[in-house]
Write a protein that binds this DNA or RNA. Sequence first.
DNA 1: GATTTAAATGATAATGATTATCAATATGAA
DNA 2: TTCATATTGATAATCATTATCATTTAAATC
Lengths: 150, 150
Amino acid sequence: MLNQLNILLREENLRVTPQREAILKVLYDCRGHHLETENIYELLAARSEKGKKIGLATVYRTMELFEKIGLVSRLSMENLPARYELILQTKLIHHHLICLKCGCVQEIDDKLAEDFKNRIIDQTGFEVKDKSMKIYGYCSRCREQVKNKR
Amino acid sequence: MLNQLNILLREENLRVTPQREAILKVLYDCRGHHLETENIYELLAARSEKGKKIGLATVYRTMELFEKIGLVSRLSMENLPARYELILQTKLIHHHLICLKCGCVQEIDDKLAEDFKNRIIDQTGFEVKDKSMKIYGYCSRCREQVKNKR
DNA sequence: GATTTAAATGATAATGATTATCAATATGAA
DNA sequence: TTCATATTGATAATCATTATCATTTAAATC
């Protein structure tokens, strides 16, 4: 895993730093979860020896970098902070249903999504971001709450 | 059109105000476009007689209200401000491909989208927001730019 | 039409995630 | 080890959106 980071960074003439490795480790240990930058920052702080904290700005910068080199997938929430998830080799393609209210994330059948995505590209030339389609809406739980409010 | 506003507001025990009517008119005159709150604010300022401006906060509040009562459709951009579009009766169902980079919006075939949406609901219980599915990604033009950067 | 009351408005401060700045530090090639 | 420059950390700045609150207004009731 750290090897992969090494290779990707080398490709772009970027440096391997303890901070980047530590962040990648956190992401790996939380694989399957979708972490806010702030979460990552706190987890790093909890792990670090006293007096050796990684700056919040560094975490933001690193997440931006990791997304650019294809290590993580970024989910933009409506009002909530964005979330990141490590992209694992064993599961390169995954598509998300993201609740704009509570931020929960469900996944949908890859074949179904791929089929749809292909049809969109055929018809319009629009390419859904990277290998991960993100469909925003409301999960069943939140939809109930919205209905009750109205 | 103003009638519809009247009816919807009455249903919710809300008041019909000159500000709300003026904002609705702007949205109607710009139908088909996707306006930022700031755009709407400026258009209102241009129309108003001197010394009778509508406050920016009111525009924000009104857009939130209009979305709640189903008059407009909100498109959340990644870093850019959100955009709104009037939902017209003649075209109740429309689905968007929204470019996270430049904010351009394309539409996709309703049948294709509806079919997909129905399959999602069947499989997961997740309901895409209102009658308007919003798929985020990069349009072909911006994708080229991203590729060149890397 | 006058009275009343909660809703709405406008001006502005506050919020909060993200980005920019910049001096200090550390990486990795030579 | 040296050196150029990428990176970091601390913090200020940004900027869309929300909250606050005193003032105004819609519309129901008299």
